[in-house]
Design a protein around this nucleic acid. Structure first.
Length: 579
RNA sequence: CGGGUAGUAGCGCAGGGGCUAGCGCACUUGGUUCGGGACCAAGGGGUCGGAGGUUCAAAUCCUCUCUGCCCGACCA
């Protein structure tokens, strides 16, 4: 075997799963967010990919492969050449032509589809690939969870209409649950933000785990789940008769807490003002414009950045600098849109817009206004931009919401005509009309899936990946000097199509067992002098630690039966969920 | 991009102006062991991330730079 096991974890391995993948020799790091899959890791991902392939074929997918390097032209057509920032790697070729490393393949596949799918008779279609993506993430972390280069399953659907899209979207919804559960990974689907993909409806598949970076808001009672980026919740409004504005001195009250305490009021009776700067990119020519965004939420709530970014239709947002705020004559700590001047976008959460007589900043250090009212005292766009937190009321049933950390392992999008329109991908219908194709795109991170599996399946001795995704099915440990019998067993099992890792090293039993536990192949067969005398091998299951023995004469049948049992146990638990 | 932290042998670490840079694991050779990370002996391997500087003398001090890891990407 090319790789070796390590006794000690390389520094920086902060989760068990990541530590064991490194120590067992599944992966090796080459740079920030850049990893090699060593033979063990590669074999495991191959098994994952085979499961994916079966399920994608089952919903009618055709596997294909598109280039990683794309001419920038097609990315300019959709505008994403301009709207995506540094996350996409770019270069020019020898002829000085703009090129990009595709971080996803909507442009590439649409470019092909516009010539292939010219008639309603050729629809619907579904294609997929499993291929390398490069995304220059500003901060890769947590081993394989967040990397810059990775293998992704991505599929693209083409339909005549939204009914067709809905059908294939539901097929993916179901297929993804089958894929994850066939790998042995528990997952949930949550409503999600469509981000840079555009489009309306989108779901993320989450593996719930403390190592996750996403926060999922969910309701135990009615089953509502959503990524916090878009999660809704019920807000109480404070409606009352509007009172006249009154300016009061509030020295040293720069935070809502200080202000509420000083005035002896509930933070819910205040309006909090948050400043961000949005970048707005012109899709046609890439020209960028920055604009101050003033976000108002009620004092007890917090702004959800992605909601705000969507509400302002900004490509990206960042916190504003003091000078940028001052340029619109507002005073941080004592700010509100009242009396502000200059060019800015004001987004008002409905919690503020629908409540009356809130305390807000007077844009003068040490002073606030009492009884401010949206509409009367200032204007703006009303949108939900508040962040859902644990304990808030479920938008569907009102029960207290809960939250959990999760890792996004898959994502499905209803794109609609966002790409077909900008790239002129149309089909001709029965009446000879040109109609834009209705598209969907769908993705699963293969390496991330392996990372999650390593996180889910380990113990104090190492990994214990489930049978369907373990790099090998059997780990054969020979402890006798004469290799003849072990060689014969290895050859027989291999001939029967069983994946065997054969430890014929001249190491002590302890070393071999420790390595076997660390690598975590589901079935360990040990050939020692004791059992050999009886014509037997010892069997130990990695998942349960259960031990027994097989007669050497029956070994292939016995092993096959155990493999089938373990696979069946997973298959029995395959999740079938409909959207 | 900001903050923190660290780069010394394949991995984990010590050494913090002075003469040949060390320890554990791993590796090589010989021998003894041989069912849960064996033992003895003898070895090989690093110029201390990089560049520049200070000094009689730099892994060690200074400046710049590169890279990894962690935190923050945010409520004024």
């Amino acid at each position: 075997m090319f790789s070796r096991t390590l006794r000690e974890a390389p520094s920086g391995a902060d989760s068990k799963g990541y530590e064991y993948l490194l120590r067992a020799g599944y992966i090796e790091q080459m740079g920030a967010g850049i990893f090699s899959l060593l033979p063990l890791g590669f074999k495991a991902t191959q098994k994952i990919q085979n499961i994916i392939r079966e399920e994608m074929n089952a919903i009618g997918g055709e596997e294909m492969q598109m280039p990683v390097v794309n001419p920038a032209d097609i990315w300019k057509e959709t505008g994403r050449f301009y709207s995506i920032d540094k996350e996409m790697a770019r270069f020019t070729d020898r002829n000085n032509r703009d090129m990009v490393l595709a971080m996803t393949h909507e442009e590439a596949v649409t470019d092909i589809a516009r010539t292939e799918l010219d008639s309603y008779k050729r629809l619907p279609r579904l294609v997929y690939q499993m291929q390398t993506k490069f995304r220059d993430d500003p901060r890769p972390r947590a081993g394989l969870i967040r990397v810059r280069e990775f293998t992704m399953l991505d599929s693209y659907s083409f339909d005549r209409d939204y009914e067709g899209l809905d059908r294939i979207y539901r097929d993916h919804y179901r297929a993804y649950f089958r894929i994850f559960s066939r790998c042995g990974l528990p997952s949930i689907a949550v409503g999600a933000d469509s981000g840079m993909m555009g489009g309306k409806i989108s779901h993320e598949y989450m593996y719930l785990s403390p190592i996750g970076e996403d926060t999922i808001i969910y309701c135990d009672k009615c089953g509502y789940t959503a990524n916090r980026q878009i999660a809704r919740f019920q807000k109480e409004y404070f409606k009352e008769e509007m009172k006249p504005v009154e300016k009061v001195a509030t020295p040293e009250c720069k935070t809502i807490e200080e202000l509420a305490e000083f005035l002896g009021i509930d933070p819910r009776k205040t309006a909090k003002c948050v400043f961000m700067v949005g970048t707005f990119v012109n899709d046609r020519n890439g020209e960028e414009e920055e604009k101050l965004i003033v976000a108002l939420v009620r004092g007890d709530l917090e702004v959800e950045e992605s909601k705000l970014s969507n509400a302002a239709r900004a490509n990206s947002i960042r916190p504003a600098h003091e000078e940028e705020i001052a340029a619109c004559s507002m005073v941080p700590g004592y700010a509100s849109p009242i009396g502000a001047t200059g060019d800015f976008i004001c987004i008002v959460d409905d919690s503020v817009a629908e409540s009356n007589n809130l305390v807000a900043g007077a844009n003068e250090a040490g002073y606030h206004y009492l009884n401010t009212n949206f509409g009367r005292d200032y204007q703006g766009t009303v949108k939900d931009i508040a962040s859902a937190r644990e304990g808030m009321a479920c938008p569907e049933c009102g029960a207290p919401l809960k939250s959990s950390k999760g890792v996004e392992i898959g994502n499905i999008f209803q794109l609609g005509t966002r790409y077909s329109e900008s790239m002129n991908c149309t089909y001709q219908d029965e009446n000879g009309r040109q109609i834009p194709v209705v598209m969907g795109s769908y993705g699963i991170g293969v390496g991330r899936l392996l990372a999650c599996l390593a996180e889910e399946y380990n113990d104090e001795s190492g990994l214990k990946l489930p049978m369907p995704v373990a790099p090998y099915q059997v780990h054969l440990v020979s402890l006798v000097k004469d290799p003849a019998v072990a060689d014969r067993i290895y050859e027989e099992l291999t001939r029967k199509g069983i994946d065997v890792l054969y430890d014929d090293r001249n190491e002590t039993a302890g070393v071999k067992f420790a390595d076997a536990d660390l690598i975590g192949i589901p079935i360990r067969l040990t050939l020692g002098s004791r059992s050999l005398k009886e014509g037997k091998v010892e069997v130990r299951l990695r998942s349960t630690g259960e031990t027994s023995s097989y007669l050497i004469d029956d070994i292939a049948e016995e092993v096959k039966a155990e493999i089938d049992r373990e696979i069946q146990a997973i298959e029995d638990k395959v999740v079938e969920k409909e959207l």
